[in-house]
Design a protein around this nucleic acid. Structure first.
Lengths: 127, 127
DNA sequence: TAATTATATGCAACTTAGTTGCATTTGTCA
DNA sequence: TGACAAATGCAACTAAGTTGCATATAATTA
């Protein structure tokens, strides 16, 4: 039998945030959101809730070379276009990686997950 | 005229290390190497040398979801197979990403760089 | 609806990765 | 062998994330 989860205000708010947010967010942004909802949740609690969601495969953990993690709700296999100028993150759907993974399997490596991100300039920031 | 670089013992040793190392290493490993060479270089200096090599595009900076950076000498476009069990890192050559980047360009995003890593189990660790 | 209790939280203190300012040292080149 | 820019060391700092432990609270059940 699974551990039963308690629907605390912090957990409900964070779940709601992830459901309504499209781009990958960091702990700081989560705390800011909680503050805006008048919840003064301790950062330790935030880390623990995020950790729980991550370990239960509800959210994904990403790194964009910033020296910290970002999180987003798990969705269909996709990758990110990260603008180095304005930090906008766009999604791109997966097309090729499956094939790639088959080639790798032939070499004897068992792929469990992958990460693919593109860095550059979005439409606006090229002007 | 470019800044003239001084060939200090630390810089020479670190350059040598990168030239002789195949898999991506972190700051801790660099310091361990320096110690093994009887150099008790301060960590600040190590960070500064690595930073210099990175900014001068001699080495690449990578993230494998560990909450820290790893570095390797720049070489032909390739990706990594990271074993979650024994931390061995294998290289795979790039096949598809160029095509992918062309598709992305059509959408108006200007790709400057990308990162692609696969996580899973190497041959040995599957037994 | 009150007692029970596992689950969740807050706090303070800690760790690890990386950074900054400033005084001192050291390669290099003339 | 000076002179001086470049590099280093030190100490103190920041930022991200973690741990132990005491307290609080959501949810169950009597």
């Amino acid at each position: 039998m699974e551990a039963k989860i308690k629907n605390t205000p912090a957990r409900l708010a964070i779940t709601q945030l992830f459901e309504n947010t499209d781009s990958p967010i960091d702990i700081e942004q989560i705390i800011a959101f909680l503050r805006s909802k008048k919840l003064k949740t301790n950062k330790v609690t935030v880390y623990r809730i995020v950790d729980f969601l991550y370990k239960n495969e509800i959210i994904n953990r990403l790194e964009f070379g910033e020296g910290k993690f970002r999180y987003e709700v798990k969705k269909e296999d996709h990758h990110h276009l990260v603008c180095s100028n304005c930090d906008v993150v766009e999604d791109v759907s997966d097309v090729f990686i499956d094939k790639f993974e088959k080639d790798i399997a032939k070499k004897g490596f068992l792929v469990k997950s992958h990460s693919l991100e593109f860095f550059g300039l979005c439409k606006n920031c090229q002007l």
